[in-house]
Nucleic acid binder design. Sequence first.
DNA 1: AGTACAAGTTGTACTATACAACTTGAATCC
DNA 2: GGATTCAAGTTGTATAGTACAACTTGTACT
Lengths: 146, 146
Amino acid sequence: MNAAEAVETIQREMTIFARRARASAGRMHPELSLVSYTLLGHLEERGGCRATDLAAHYALDKSTVSRQVAALERAGLIERRVDAEDHRVQVLHLTEAGRRILAQVTESRRAAFQARLADWPEQDLARFADYLVRYNAWAPQEPDDA
Amino acid sequence: MNAAEAVETIQREMTIFARRARASAGRMHPELSLVSYTLLGHLEERGGCRATDLAAHYALDKSTVSRQVAALERAGLIERRVDAEDHRVQVLHLTEAGRRILAQVTESRRAAFQARLADWPEQDLARFADYLVRYNAWAPQEPDDA
DNA sequence: AGTACAAGTTGTACTATACAACTTGAATCC
DNA sequence: GGATTCAAGTTGTATAGTACAACTTGTACT
């Protein structure tokens, strides 16, 4: 396989994956869409942040985030605390339920990936992980995947 | 990096990619969504096929395919020919315009991937391509990406 | 002929998304 | 210190992609 062929294969396979991923994620975890999952995960990592930060970080419109956040709050997975310094700002925090659901979906996703990759040699796993990191790290200023 | 860490990294990076891909594809190629592109590509490869085949192959509902096909026909990119043998069946074919647009988007996508992977050593490209194929080939009967 | 199945279409609904207009609060600038 | 400008969020509106269910039409099998 020469370089041009490899690039073509990467392109094709990434496209296949991209096309499938969201729908599949929804089917696997009806309780938490891929977006919600990502946002919750971010909140967990950071221990709370603003809606605007989420929008910026994930290249989403603030209205989109606003609605996602509203849904997550309605579901009782996060709560908003108005910032004492700046009353425009709402700092978002996971609730206990949010933390629980997040952990549960994380675990179920982990298990699915684990199963899928179970019989890969460790060296291949390490290389694949490394390639993906390198691939995604490209040009963060202009995301143009797929 | 041990196996568990590698699996976790793969999971995280695939998720990031999945979340970004569609929107980015849309922004890059407003004239052809990722789905349309995929369907057109399939038609090109096979030299025409039925809507049902597309649905089965891409795990889409037949109604979804029906509307996609309708849109592509409206845009003049494909045409339907009722099968002489079985009048229920419509065999879909690319039109000249469809072939042109497809080639154009393919080229622009190819260039984007090319640029992104330009400074990867050939061996890494080959391995990455191989890993992706292996990853996507898993359990075609139950797609559960991301 | 009659029943069962297959291909496609259409009605309906939902999710994710963006853009634009708006509200509310903070900060800056004469 | 009031007026202007900017930032955070919300809401209205629109679009794409998707699924499921109900339906139509055509084929095949008994």
